[in-house]
């Protein structure tokens, strides 16, 4: 294709977009809605996913030792645990560290001064973090072996097992549902925009027929529609990002008030922190949907 032909086709695409402005407006608005739905669901799912990940990351097992256990025994135990592939991190907490942590937790309360550093009753412990929350059960079984029983005072996991398992189940469910809903909504939105673009092209069936009859080749017919699809994508991205930004500012205080939590703040932070990535993703998705749907819709009119 020569440069002259390319500029001619490009100009034709832009002129057609403007001359069919009502159809273009309808397609752009549907595309805007599509992008808004995709962005909101993707952001919500990512935030939920991030929140659940941080909850799961906080789940750990703490092994408290009897005072009779020797340092060598604890170090050897620590090495054995660290050698496991499902263990992410093992941290030793000495009596002194336990006291500092206790005092920090109880700061400002009288109970904080109750413990004398010289007669510290707080046990030494190992904090074990798993690579995946689901492995905690196996790790707890390993820690509960009879060989370790004499030096172990208590294992925190045994007490919280039910709550932890429920939390693991709930977060997994939440993540799956989030992605499932996003997937379903994205699919529906794509079908709607595909149908809209098909309708805009259908109303111009005669135009395509005339183009063919005066000897236009496939590119001359196809490319202007692709350019129109591209314009739908770009304009819809700009509008939907604006809507998203304004919407966040309006909705965040309301959501905070109703929910009494900072989930919406997290959304806002996520939005402003990842603005360029979100805009980039939207423009890529918008252009891909615009061009893809135009190509699919125009295909059947190019025969003969």
């Amino acid at each position: 294709m020569s440069w002259k032909t390319f500029t001619r086709i490009f100009k034709l695409g832009i002129t057609n977009f403007w001359r069919n402005r009502w159809l273009s407006l309808a397609a752009t608005l549907v595309m805007t809605l599509t992008l808004l739905i995709i962005s909101i669901f993707a952001m919500m799912t990512l935030v939920i996913s991030k929140t659940t990940d941080s909850i799961r990351d906080k789940m750990d097992i703490t092994v408290y030792f009897n005072d009779s256990a020797t340092v060598d025994q604890i170090v050897s135990f620590q090495h054995q645990i660290a050698a496991r592939t499902d263990v992410k991190e093992v941290r030793y907490i000495s009596k002194e560290e336990a006291l500092v942590s206790f005092k920090n937790q109880q700061a400002g309360k009288k109970v904080a001064d109750l413990i004398d550093p010289n007669e510290n009753p707080l046990p030494r412990s190992l904090e074990v973090k798993a690579n995946q929350a689901e492995s905690l059960d196996q790790i707890a079984t390993f820690l509960g072996q009879e060989t370790f029983t004499p030096m172990v005072h208590v294992i925190s996991y045994q007490e919280n097992r039910v709550v932890i398992n429920r939390l693991i189940g709930f977060t997994t469910f939440l993540k799956k549902v989030g992605w499932l809903f996003s997937g379903v909504f994205v699919l529906i939105s794509i079908l709607v925009i595909l149908n809209t673009i098909r309708l805009t092209i259908l109303t111009r069936k005669n135009e395509i027929e005339i183009m063919r009859l005066v000897g236009a080749n496939d590119n001359f017919i196809k490319v202007p529609f692709i350019i129109e699809g591209l314009l739908y994508g770009i304009i819809a991205t700009i509008i939907s990002t604006m809507f998203l930004k304004i919407g966040m500012q309006i909705i965040t205080p309301m959501m905070n008030q109703y929910l009494g939590m900072d989930f919406s703040n997290q959304m806002t932070n996520f939005f402003s922190g990842n603005f360029l990535s979100i805009f980039g993703m939207e423009i890529l998705v918008g252009i891909a949907i615009g061009i893809g749907c135009s190509l699919i819709s125009i295909r059947k009119y190019l025969k003969v």
Partner: peptide, 13 residues
């Protein structure tokens, strides 16, 4: 099919 446009340019309808 790729030759059709060139033919149609030679025939007025």
């Amino acid at each position: 099919s790729e030759e059709l446009p060139y033919y149609r340019r030679k025939v007025g309808v």
